[in-house]
Design a binder for these strands. Structure first.
Ligand SMILES: [Mn+2]
Ligand SMILES: [Mn+2]
Ligand SMILES: [Zn+2]
Ligand SMILES: [Zn+2]
Lengths: 152, 152
DNA sequence: GCATAATTGATACTCGGTTGCAACTAGCAT
DNA sequence: ATGCTAGTTGCAACCGAGTATCAATTATGC
């Protein structure tokens, strides 16, 4: 399983340590899974991947670590339109925010960055005097392929 | 409890009936609650309000009616940043979409309409060839008041 | 009115996530 | 290095939002 070139492994760990958070074996494992994930993972997928590295990890620790990462603004939480039940999905927060499109027919998840999105956030900060910490935009509908074949 | 002037009561009911959905006593009750709600309600708040009108209504029926309304695109579902647990909140879908800001300190929910928001959706439909059915934008942060007092 | 397909309500269940607590350990002081 | 202590872990029990099942009820078209 090759690491993605786009992200330094250990970045999350370094970030947390610089903020005085204790680094345990379990946390290191979970952070590495979050960091090298290629898609949006839910807590149980995360646990499974973490257990491949350290079979002793408990699911509670996964939940606790996710909460920690959320609190520090290092991961974002998504519903992905509840395409698969009530679970939540997680992804490392990227440099630039993006929005998510979920195809209600084929289940595909698409991501999109946009200047309009960035400008919208700017407008909110200015006009509403609201200090933005987290952004979450999700769209449900039909992707280009599924819409061609008809929204049956 | 006076009805709000902004919305015709019975609108949801009429909409569903025009689509051939059977209208039961329970559904009428729940629809009226959704329609006259002044804030975003979760399923259990909805049940409580519905039971004030018809004490026999079961929570299962509330969930089923919400699913029906979602399927027909007549209500939107929100997380409101999970400020109060894992529950979901519901609101009648408005003419024009708006986004939600949740203050992580005082819990206030603010709504905002924006041309940039509308244009962003247009951009997505065009550039991604994605047929939008549902939009959900939620922002977490500090409202003007809380940010003035410091984000403690 | 009657037939029938859809809906309801009671109950049991699933499952994502949390809590309480004793055992363990990271990180710091000596 | 050793010991101390506050923070963390794993387990087990728990919680609560939402769903499945199914017999009893009811909306709607004829
Ligand atoms: Mn959710
Ligand atoms: Mn993403
Ligand atoms: Zn699709
Ligand atoms: Zn506030």
């Amino acid at each position: 399983m090759p690491l993605p070139q786009t992200e330094q492994p250990g970045r999350l760990q370094a970030e947390l340590m610089s903020r005085g958070v204790r680094m345990t074996r379990q946390r290191r494992t979970i952070l590495s899974v979050v960091e090298t994930a290629q898609q949006h993972l839910d807590a149980s997928q995360l646990l499974r991947k973490a257990r491949r590295i350290d079979p002793e990890i408990d699911r509670v620790t996964v939940y606790r670590t996710l909460k920690l990462l959320k609190r520090h603004g290092l991961v974002d939480e998504l519903d992905l339109m509840h395409l698969q039940g009530e679970k939540h999905f997680y992804e490392r927060r990227p440099q630039r925010d993006h929005l998510h499109m979920a195809c209600l027919r084929c289940g595909k998840i698409l991501e999109f960055e946009s200047n309009l999105f960035d400008r919208l956030k700017g407008q909110i900060q200015r006009e509403c005097q609201f200090h933005i910490l987290v952004t979450r935009m999700e769209i449900g509908g039909y992707c280009s392929q599924c819409r061609a074949t008809g929204p049956a």
